[in-house]
């Protein structure tokens, strides 16, 4: 299927694609540190293993960035 990840169109050769699986495929090391936006909606972390990504979906990985003062 074809999905848009962080603005880039990518082909993923899987049909039963969950958020968890996509995080694995994209080699996101610490999923705890990523907020996932699926078609402009924030996905509840508890649903990462059940929510399915479909053809032409838009996914954004938003990373926590904490620095500033220090």
């Amino acid at each position: 299927m074809q999905i848009k990840i962080n603005g880039e169109i990518e082909k993923i050769a899987e049909t039963n694609l969950t958020i968890t699986r996509l995080l694995e495929i994209k080699k996101v090391e610490s999923p705890d540190l990523v907020s996932v936006l699926l078609n402009d909606e924030i996905v509840d972390r508890a649903h990462y293993e059940t929510i399915k990504i479909s053809d032409n979906d838009t996914v954004e990985f938003l990373y926590f960035m904490g620095g500033g003062a220090g």
Binding site: S30, D32, L33, F64, G66
Partner: peptide, 10 residues
């Protein structure tokens, strides 16, 4: 996020 899960600048 869980404490110390995110690296800080330091």
């Amino acid at each position: 996020p869980p404490p110390d899960a995110v690296p800080t600048c330091s």
